[in-house]
């Protein structure tokens, strides 16, 4: 599971992500890239799409291999203690970069009632529970994902 505290970063992968950013975010990415002959050192500035083309491997295969090491667990985003409207902004920024099929798990200190209409309008489904006092957990994924 990817853990992010108050940040908009995420584990979901997209073809336009750079190799460097993936290596920084995911332990084990280096081995996957080396196994597929993708240069993660000099080619760190390249996007996944460009790096796949350069190495002569299928983009889908490379993304699938990287997705495996990033895991299928939801990305966690902790926005507790942030001043309004930063929790909403952080969540929406994280969702904007969330990979198809990935899930965002937000940790909040209250039910974000103003966030829900924004999620509905953007086609996300969401579920909220309170696993412990002071922690409100919202799981968000794209509708149909």
């Amino acid at each position: 599971m990817a853990h992010e505290s108050g940040s908009a970063a995420h584990a979901g992968l997209r073809p336009d992500d750079t190799i460097g950013s993936i290596v920084r975010r995911h332990a084990g990415a280096t081995e996957v890239l080396e196994a597929m002959d993708v240069n993660h050192c000099c080619g760190a500035h390249l996007t996944v799409r460009e790096a796949a083309a350069l190495a002569g491997v299928s983009l889908d295969a490379l993304l699938a291999a990287l997705e495996r090491i990033s895991g299928g667990d939801p990305v966690q985003l902790d926005v507790r203690g942030l001043e309004p409207p930063q929790p909403m902004v952080r969540v929406l920024e994280a969702l904007d970069r969330l990979a198809p099929g990935a899930e965002l798990e937000v940790h909040h200190d209250r039910r974000p009632l103003l966030l829900y209409p924004q999620l509905d309008a953007r086609g996300y489904v969401h579920e909220t529970d309170e696993p412990e006092p002071g922690l409100v957990r919202i799981r968000i994924r794209r509708s149909g994902g």
């Binding site: 009632l113 209409p117 509905d120 969401h126 579920e127 919202i138």
Partner: peptide, 9 residues
């Protein structure tokens, strides 16, 4: 999931 989280503002 979805709308049942919010009260409808």
């Amino acid at each position: 999931m979805g709308g049942r989280d919010g009260p409808g503002l």
